[in-house]
Design a binder for these strands. Structure first.
Length: 493
RNA sequence: GGCGGCGUGGCCAAGUGGACUAAGGCGACGGUUUGCAAAACCGUUAUUCAUGGGUUCGAAUCCCAUCGCCGCCUCCA
């Protein structure tokens, strides 16, 4: 059985078959760059990073396309709606484009820390204004949209499929409408394709309807169409965007093109912090820089970015995840265990007897890989896939404890760590800054001197001195470990 | 008001009709090792899956009810 994905359109887990054999286009709704990336971004983009990595592991040529929203989206549907980017720009006394640039760089830095692979293309909304205008024109020409007073609205009543993704009907929404209805619209559910700009609006472009700026949902339709085609394989995003954002994307795209817009809709669930929705006003808002530095009142310590990644992978992307200091600490411990095992395996390869891999181990590795593939094929069950990595850790440690592993065996294990833990899950690095590494040569010598002193003290049964040396080094983050043969090794804490 | 989801050991979490006498991680406890540690390994840690009914030969998994929690419906991942 190949890869099966849960398709929000239809709410079923289906066999994944791309439109073109061997090639997959993935569009992911990216961030609005008016602030630093936070835990929610981490969950979403790690989830879709895993999708892309796994598709590549399966041999697909993947075109990966998360966008940046750098023209502010409206905060509400009314005429006086404010533009989030413009509001942030005014607060920070910067041009919106400078702001977008700054936070785009910040976003990439954080995603690099989380080991998310860089996208093939990161299209910006402001770079696609002519295309957006063209799409609005098409929709007007085809009778799906109407102009009122310099703004253009999509007429939902003309598109019968509206609501098929989110399972809502236009009538229900009208009944539950909490937003003041714009007087310009024919129907409350109609949404803006193009908005007329007031003279003081900073970001505006000239269009057939006068000066204005694009509506909320247009960029995703336009950019996915431009780079991936009229029908795309996979569109991902946060579950909160299911409605109205994705529903509107479908309406615009399908009305304009007359073909299905997206074949598989994937939505990741939300994060909570200590069991509550994360929000700026709730005093539980944690961004990634705070998480990595530990500088936040809800955190007891800094966390390794990959420990955060591991925590995300420990639950399913469609389940909500609760971030708490305890959960992060537990993930950090587990992550350290994997990291230590990988480092040990790599170190031991040089000293191990030079012989081929042991057949029984090869056999065990095969079954682990099979278990891993089955888990990932089942709608990207990373929790089970990660458990395979822990089984690999146990196997590796057991073999190293026994001291009989050949270089071939250890290389086979390392290869599994690199492929499954590294290439697919992204929690195993190619290199760790550790004892013996080139950039640590000086440190290795210095710690080596301390170890020699301590060994002398131990030989004289001067344990007060030997323990003092160990404690002092620990205070600097250097852990000493005595091995059975009397040898002592060190590692970073 | 409408829509959706969740409740599994001390904590996180997978499993969603039979191989479940419930994976994995964290933690705790005991053992091996150690001068003592650390790390690693071995073992123990849920007869039970919010509660009460029901369907079934069989239910953590399906149905109904009750309680509790969360999210979306407004820019948001």
């Amino acid at each position: 059985m190949g890869l099966r994905l849960h398709n929000t359109l239809g709410r079923k887990t289906e066999e994944f078959k791309p439109l073109q054999e061997g090639r997959v286009g993935v569009y992911v709704c990216g961030p609005t760059v008016y602030g630093h990336a936070h835990l929610g971004h981490a969950k979403s983009y790690v989830s879709f990073d895993i999708l892309v990595r796994y598709l590549r592991y399966l041999g697909f040529a993947v075109k990966d396309l998360p966008n940046f929203t750098d023209v502010g989206q409206l905060t509400d549907d009314a005429d006086e709606g404010e533009d989030t980017l413009a509001v942030a720009a005014i607060k920070e006394h910067k041009h919106p484009m400078a702001l977008a640039e700054y936070y785009t760089a910040s976003y990439f830095k954080d995603m690099d820390e989380l080991c998310c692979v860089r996208p093939d293309i990161s299209p910006r909304a402001t770079g696609h204004i002519p295309e957006q205008i063209a799409l609005v024109k098409t929709l007007v020409d085809k009778g799906f949209a109407y102009e009122v007073n310099g703004s253009v609205y999509f007429e939902v009543a003309r598109f019968p499929g509206y609501g098929k993704l989110s399972g809502r009907s236009v009538d229900e929404m009208q009944a539950g409408a909490r937003v003041a209805v714009s007087t310009e619209k024919k129907h409350p559910a109609d949404f803006a394709l193009w908005k007329k700009a007031e003279p003081n609006h900073i970001m505006q472009w000239y269009s057939p309807w006068g000066w204005g700026y694009p509506g909320w949902h247009l960029e995703c339709s336009v950019m996915s169409m431009k780079y991936l085609g009229e029908t795309i394989d996979i569109h991902g995003g946060g579950i909160e965007n299911q409605f109205p954002h994705h529903e509107c994307e479908i309406a615009q795209s399908e009305a304009a093109n007359g073909v299905p817009f997206v074949r598989y809709w994937l939505h990741n669930n939300m994060v909570t912090v200590n069991g509550r929705k994360m929000g700026k006003s709730l005093n539980n808002f944690i961004n990634l820089k705070e998480l990595f530095s530990g500088e936040h009142q809800l955190l007891s310590r800094p966390y390794d970015p990959l420990a955060v990644r591991q925590l995300i992978l420990q639950s399913h992307y469609r389940s909500p995840i609760d971030f708490s200091d305890a959960a992060l600490a537990a993930a950090q411990s587990g992550y350290d265990r994997i990291k230590d095992a990988v480092i040990s395996v790599r170190k031991q390869i040089e000293n191990a007897p030079d012989a081929l891999a042991c057949a029984s181990v090869t056999c065990e590795l095969d079954s682990l890989r099979q278990k891993f593939d089955e888990a990932m094929n089942d709608d990207l069950n990373t929790a089970v896939a990660l458990s395979v990595i822990f089984e690999l850790v146990k196997l590796a440690n057991r073999l190293m404890d026994a001291g009989s592993a050949t270089a071939g065996t250890l290389r086979a294990i390392e290869e599994m760590f690199n492929t499954l833990g590294g290439s697919v899950l992204g929690i195993v690095r190619n290199e760790y800054s550790q004892a013996g590494a080139a950039d640590d040569a000086l440190l290795d010598h210095l710690v080596g001197m301390m170890i020699t002193q301590r060994q002398e003290a131990r030989a004289n049964k001067d344990f007060a001195t030997s323990d003092a040396i160990r404690d002092k080094l620990l205070a600097f983050g250097v852990v000493l470990e005595d091995k059975p043969g009397g040898e002592c090794t060190w590692r970073r804490k």
